[in-house]
């Protein structure tokens, strides 16, 4: 008598997922390192062989290889959000913000960004992931502000009753058209060309996953300063 196919249990799915992370970090990155390594050797040791379009083609190989390395690192960070997750503890979000600003100091200084924040509350969360979350949102706000404009960011918070705390991060950047406000949180989703704003499109996918792990929600609306407002709730 035929038996119904057995559905994989949660443990098997988690194991498979872990294997993917391993494949990305080890099995796929090794041949990629060789591609990049030997391309560099060719460029450094035998430049005289790169005649005609050969140099251009080699640049393209290296550019694509570097991009793939960044994307694989992004996927690995994404998959490790669960495996390297820490227990939740009571943390001061003002301290979290200070750590983010210290990490982002070179970018903030380079763009002369003005960042203001209300007094933030204590919450129960994974501190390292909160630092990662605020860093992604602040870094994005600065990055997606046209170069001729001084980035201005305002972080505020209000109680959302049973839903915990409602944080908002307003900027004066390029903004996000309404039709992209859901898909912008997908992995590798980009709204601009590499020339306009370089990147791989991983930041907001990471932010969404961090918020989901904390039982909250994240979404984006217009900002009164002409850019975007990112909202998130944390219980």
């Amino acid at each position: 008598m035929p038996t119904a196919a057995k559905l994989p249990d949660a443990e098997a799915i988690a194991e498979e997922y872990k294997n993917y992370a391993y494949i990305i970090s080890h099995d796929l990155s090794a041949p990629l390192r060789s591609i990049l390594g030997f391309s560099r050797l060719l460029e450094e040791e035998m430049p005289e062989t790169l005649t005609g379009d050969a140099k251009l083609y080699l640049d393209m190989v290296m550019q694509s290889g570097n991009k793939m390395q960044q994307m694989m690192a992004g996927l690995l960070t994404f998959s490790r959000l669960n495996s390297l997750a820490k227990d939740f503890a009571l943390i001061d979000m003002n301290v979290v913000l200070e750590e983010c600003l210290a990490d982002l100091q070179p970018v903030i200084t380079a763009r002369q960004a003005k960042i203001e924040a209300d007094t933030l509350p204590n919450i129960t969360a994974d501190k390292a992931q909160m630092v990662q979350l605020l860093s992604i949102l602040i870094d994005n706000a600065i990055k997606f502000t046209p170069p001729d404009r001084v980035p201005q960011i305002h972080i505020s918070v209000q109680s959302a009753g049973q839903n915990g705390q409602h944080f908002t991060l307003e900027d004066n950047g390029v903004g996000i058209a309404e039709k992209f406000r859901e898909t912008v949180f997908q992995i590798f989703r980009r709204l601009h060309t590499e020339n306009e704003y370089p990147g791989i499109g991983m930041g907001l996918a990471l932010a969404k996953k961090i918020i989901a792990r904390h039982g909250g929600e994240i979404w984006v609306t217009d900002s009164q300063f002409g850019g975007s407002t990112f909202h998130f709730t944390l219980i």
């Binding site: 251009l56 083609y57 393209m60 550019q63 694509s64 060309t193 590499e194």
Partner: peptide, 8 residues
């Protein structure tokens, strides 16, 4: 097309 390699 947005990919520099595919453009070339």
């Amino acid at each position: 097309e947005d990919n520099p390699g595919d453009i070339l």
